[in-house]
């Protein structure tokens, strides 16, 4: 599902964020990518979304080769990836329903399909009764669940989550991770970039550890490696 082959990313200023990274994530896997700040996690996240292009190496996501993909195909690849951010990135001037429906509107889903699909997603994340609320009326945990509903509504092959529990308390963090695990059990590949030690150690999933742009560990049922 996700394949990186000798990927190196050097920014125009000369800073190398990733060095010769090789990585293979199969369909249906649940993977944590961990590392301290400056380890290259965010760069990897952006490369997977094709927000950045690697200076060297090849990236393949959901069958698309990023080195040869045409510009007009980039939106198509992104539609197969659901994204969740640390700061939720919800549209503040729209209701919860509209936020989730927005993801379907931008890919031009017919209105009748949106009317069926959005309530189903809100039910899945446990917010069916709050569809008329605005993001500011929800707690951090609830906002992140809306973001999850938005990421899931287009039925993606992959969920990419960047520090999804970064702004949440422990209880909400556990809820969100349980939700991600449920989604994974339905067959969606889940990649979580995080530095939440407790959660990584608790869930016993595959853990890829990055340090200064290099993979220093990749364990099937790993734990958080404390660099200190």
């Amino acid at each position: 599902m996700i394949e990186l082959e000798n990927v190196t990313m050097t920014y125009p200023g000369g800073m190398t964020a990733l060095k010769d990274v090789n990585l293979n994530i199969e369909k249906g896997e649940f993977v944590f990518i961990v590392g301290s700040s400056g380890s290259g996690k965010t760069t990897l996240f952006k490369l997977l979304l094709k927000e950045l292009n690697p200076t060297e190496g090849k990236i393949r996501v959901a069958g698309y080769d990023y080195s040869t993909i045409k510009k007009n195909m980039i939106p198509k690849v992104r539609r197969r990836i659901g994204v969740v951010f640390q700061n939720f990135r919800l549209l503040k001037d729209r209701t919860i329903y509209e936020n989730v429906a927005f993801a379907q509107r931008v890919i031009q889903t017919p209105a009748r399909f949106i009317r069926r699909r959005v309530p189903a997603m809100l039910t899945l994340v446990g917010l069916a009764d709050k569809y008329k609320s605005y993001p500011r009326e929800l707690s951090g945990g609830e906002q992140q669940r809306v973001a999850m509903a938005r990421a899931l509504v287009n039925n993606p092959d992959i969920i990419l989550a960047d520090e999804p529990t970064g702004n949440l308390d422990p209880k909400n963090s556990i809820d969100i991770m349980n939700l991600l695990e449920d989604i994974n059990k339905r067959g969606t590949t889940v990649v979580v970039v995080t530095h939440n030690k407790e959660i990584v150690n608790e869930m016993k999933k595959r853990v890829i550890t990055l340090k200064k742009g290099v993979i220093i560990s990749d364990e099937k049922q790993g734990g958080y490696i404390d660099e200190d």
């Binding site: 007009n72 939106p75 198509k76 992104r78 994204v83 990135r89 549209l91 927005f102 287009n154």
Partner: peptide, 15 residues
């Protein structure tokens, strides 16, 4: 912000 989200969830240039 809205445009950034649109792009990341697969909106085309036209849209």
């Amino acid at each position: 912000e809205e445009i950034g989200i649109m792009k990341l969830i697969g909106a085309t240039n036209f849209f």
